[in-house]
């Protein structure tokens, strides 16, 4: 290890970077494992809620070019017409903190703990 790490300052700088790396990985690991109670998937277009889905159903069909797939309490975008396919590549999301984002279509899928009585009525209405 002879990467000019000799001075104290450099040691401090690289140490800070290493700590930042470990902290951010830890934070990512923690938020990846948070699961809300009674999770439902909320689908937003342009920041506006356009659909809520329970996560037991098989397939979701909104009037969109994107297709969604629900499996074992997780949801993913199975098809999208955008060029970068980032939303498809994100794969299944299991929890509420990390959303699926499709920037070209301004689409966002978030999982929240959904079921108070109000919400479930709304949910049924939209699913029908």
């Amino acid at each position: 290890m002879n990467l000019n790490l000799s001075t104290k300052r450099e040691f401090f700088l690289y140490g800070t970077v290493a700590i930042l790396f470990i902290l951010s990985l830890t934070a990512h690991f923690i938020i990846s494992n948070l699961t809300p109670q009674n999770p439902v998937a909320e689908i937003y277009e342009n920041g506006v809620l356009i659909g809520i889905y329970g996560l037991e159903n098989e397939l979701v069909n909104l009037n969109l070019d994107d297709r969604f797939e629900v499996q074992n309490g997780k949801i993913r975008v199975s098809y999208a017409n955008c060029p970068d396919k980032i939303c498809v590549n994100t794969g299944f999301i299991p929890n509420g903190i990390i959303p699926i984002i499709c920037i070209p279509n301004k689409l966002e899928i978030r999982i929240t703990s959904g079921l108070n009585s109000n919400n479930s009525a709304e949910l049924d209405a939209i699913v029908k």
Binding site: S24, I31, G47, P99, I101, I103, E108
Partner: peptide, 24 residues
Amino acid sequence: AAAVVMRSFAVFAYLPVLIAGGVI
């Protein structure tokens, strides 16, 4: 920029993994 375009703060959930990736 993504938060502005999406009009949503949810994208900030990706910040930790992007920071770790940025370090590498």
